[in-house]
């Protein structure tokens, strides 16, 4: 399958990754060859086969809802590229 530039632009939007035209073209070529490779799966008839969604066939366990980390607010905020007092700062979202 060929993935055209229009599709690449669409996926780039969905992925929230901006792309220059040069890079988008290169990606279109790369992804086209990767999808050609992936489409080998179409040779297989998978009618009636259950999808394998989890390799660890366990049921989730209940646990107590407890606070385990304490006094890490400062450390966490320190990792933020932009913060103000107790908040993460982002560009204005409300007009």
């Amino acid at each position: 399958m060929t993935i055209d530039l229009k599709t690449i632009k669409h996926i780039s939007k969905l992925s929230r990754i901006s792309l220059e035209d040069e890079k988008a073209k290169k990606l279109a070529t790369d992804l086209s060859s990767i999808f050609e490779f992936i489409e080998k799966l179409n040779e297989l008839d998978t009618k009636g086969i259950d999808p394998l969604t989890s390799i660890a066939e366990t049921t989730l366990k209940f646990r107590k809802d407890e606070v385990k980390s304490q006094n890490i607010r400062e450390k966490i905020l320190k990792n933020s590229p932009s913060d103000n007092e107790d908040f993460f700062v982002v560009p204005k979202v409300v007009e």
Partner: peptide, 10 residues
């Protein structure tokens, strides 16, 4: 499709 084939591989 891939998840189904994953089942076959397992």
């Amino acid at each position: 499709k891939a998840q189904k084939v994953r089942r076959l591989i397992k």
